[in-house]
Write a protein that binds this DNA or RNA. Structure first.
Length: 486
RNA sequence: GCGGAGUUAGUCCAGCCCGGCACGACGUCAGCUUCCCAAGCUGAAGGUCGCGGGUUCAAAUCCCGCACUCCGCACCA
């Protein structure tokens, strides 16, 4: 229900835990997924593939995590993904140089100005530390990308700070070989790396994290020629634009009222909501928040954050950026590769609309929104959607003796390769049910004395705690029906 | 990075002031018992007390440094 309970569940039940925790030099901002977490993550990704990649006939790629320096020269990350910082010589406080100068002197030095400009203003205006009045060291650029050295000469390269650059640099080849027409969605799941100044709150701000990104390449003159829009015109989404109120409207209303700029953007925001609804996240606690000019990333011309309310506040799960031709134009200039494509026999440099999803944050939110305390039955239940549950079914013997254990293993063997099943003989039956509830297993099959006579078992449903008796021969079709993706 | 609070078994924690065998609960495992919702009994495993250094005959405890976690500030492509 709240952050502390989720982190405790994560630690106790193998969802996630700190990386390298046995060593004291382990850095903050790195976490690992245990067996339950991996199982949940894999199923979440499969749902994403079904609801976005396959539904919209996107292409999925898997790019390198280390990318050449030129990529980030072109993308702007080498110059813009860095903050000018100054350190107080006396108290060691760190400030953003541009912000402090603007505050104290009202002089605006652009964030990406040459480093000497900051030093000059600081010495001319005698800018001092607001905390202790100490003077500053020379300004430095703090780039949030991790630099790596390739080969014996340690040639500079970087761990990608967002997965999408692979998609941009691969686009010319993909377009030539994969036989698509605009609009084209290209998707990728993978890790990104950012040297955050202060990582916090486990999965919510990591230095190494999973993104599921989708870049939709489109003709900027045809943003309202999206046939598939009709599939989502009645889908309800919650929007926060221009003021602080959230309005729940259908996609058609959002478009007609001008709250959203065009059919293409509206269509993909709708796909996102429909996807998240199926993850079990409570979308009545969600909103698309339109970002103001100051909040937007340097490459975005229009941006919406998909945010969900949690016990620690509104959490950004997806950044939806209209990147226009920013990336393709820059890669074209630096690489000399052609990025133009033919659309209706007219050459066009595609624009890009991006859905950049944080997987780790999404998984946290799913856990928090699924976690409940059932006080009446004195239990903790993770009411995950059956198709996302780390364990689909527990296979339990009511007692170990009288041949029940052997019969239970026989049932387990029948389904172990098709489902995530957990075999358990030991302890009281109620205790075993409780443990399964806590990792979100939607079903528990129990082998009892009657099973030996007529080959039937009981199957217990997690949320209702109801049990029904079914034939072992019907077990697979029952599980298949109940754990199927929607 | 700054300020505050912390770090002891899988989890929660006592012990620290005032140095002398690291306490308890939950959980886990095995056995017995019951046999459909965390019962009970018996037993067991599990600890470099965050890391490193110092003081001391002796350090979880006192001192110094560092790391990490949480809260606040700042940062957040």
């Amino acid at each position: 229900m709240n952050y502390e309970q989720i982190i405790q569940l994560a630690l106790e039940r193998g969802f996630y835990f700190p990386s390298c925790e046995i060593y004291s030099d382990a850095s903050a901002g790195f976490w690992e997924y245990g067996p339950s977490g991996v199982s949940l993550k894999n199923k979440f990704i499969e749902l994403w593939r079904r609801e976005l990649v396959r539904r919209d006939r996107m292409w999925e790629i898997d790019g390198s995590q280390i990318m050449s320096q030129s990529v980030f020269t072109a993308s702007g990350h080498l110059s813009s993904f860095a903050d000018p910082i100054i350190t107080c010589q006396k108290c060691k406080s760190i400030f953003r140089a541009d912000k402090l100068i603007a505050e104290v002197t009202s002089i605006v030095v652009p964030e990406n100005a040459e480093i000497e400009q900051f030093d000059r203003v600081i010495s001319e205006k005698d800018v001092r530390c607001p905390k202790c009045k100490g003077s500053f060291d020379n300004a430095k650029k703090f780039n949030m990308m991790f630099k790596v050295g390739i080969g014996p000469q340690s040639e500079a390269a970087y761990l990608r700070p967002e997965t999408c650059q692979s998609i941009f640099v691969d686009f010319p080849r993909l377009y030539k070989t994969m036989r698509g027409r605009l609009p084209i969605g290209v998707a990728q799941i993978g890790k990104s790396f950012r040297n955050e100044i202060s990582p916090r709150q486990s999965l919510l701000r990591l230095r190494e994290f999973y993104q599921a990104e989708i870049e939709v390449f489109c003709n900027p003159n045809k943003l309202n020629e999206i046939d598939r829009f009709s599939e989502v015109e009645n889908t309800e989404i919650r929007l926060m634009v221009d003021d602080d109120t959230i309005k729940q409207v259908t996609c058609r209303e959002a478009l007609e009222s001008g709250m959203l700029p065009n059919k293409l953007v509206t269509y993909y925001l709708a796909l996102l909501v429909e996807f998240y609804q199926k993850t079990g996240i409570d979308v009545s606690k969600s909103r698309f928040r339109k970002l103001g000019d100051k909040e937007k990333a340097f490459y975005a011309s229009v941006a919406f954050d998909f945010e969900v309310e949690t016990t620690i506040g509104w959490l950004e799960l997806v950044a939806c950026n209209y990147r226009s031709d920013y990336d393709l134009k820059n890669h074209e200039n630096i690489s000399k590769e052609k990025f133009e494509v033919l659309d209706d026999n007219i050459k066009v440099l595609p624009h890009v609309f991006e859905l950049s999803m944080g997987i780790d944050r999404s998984l946290y939110t799913i856990l928090e929104h699924s976690f409940r305390e059932d006080k009446e039955h004195d239990r903790v239940v993770l009411s995950l959607k059956p198709y996302l549950a780390p364990i689909h079914v527990g296979i339990l013997s009511l007692v170990k003796k009288d041949g029940l254990a052997e019969k239970t293993e026989e049932v387990f063997s029948k389904i172990r390769t098709g489902y995530d099943a957990f075999l358990d003989h030991s302890g009281a039956i109620g205790r075993r049910y409780r443990r399964l509830d806590e990792v979100g297993a939607p079903f528990a099959v129990t082998i009892d004395h009657q099973t030996l006579q007529d080959d039937t078992v009981t199957i217990r449903t997690r949320d209702s705690m109801n049990q029904e008796r079914i034939k072992i021969s019907d077990l697979e079709s029952h599980l298949s029906k109940e754990t199927r993706f929607p």
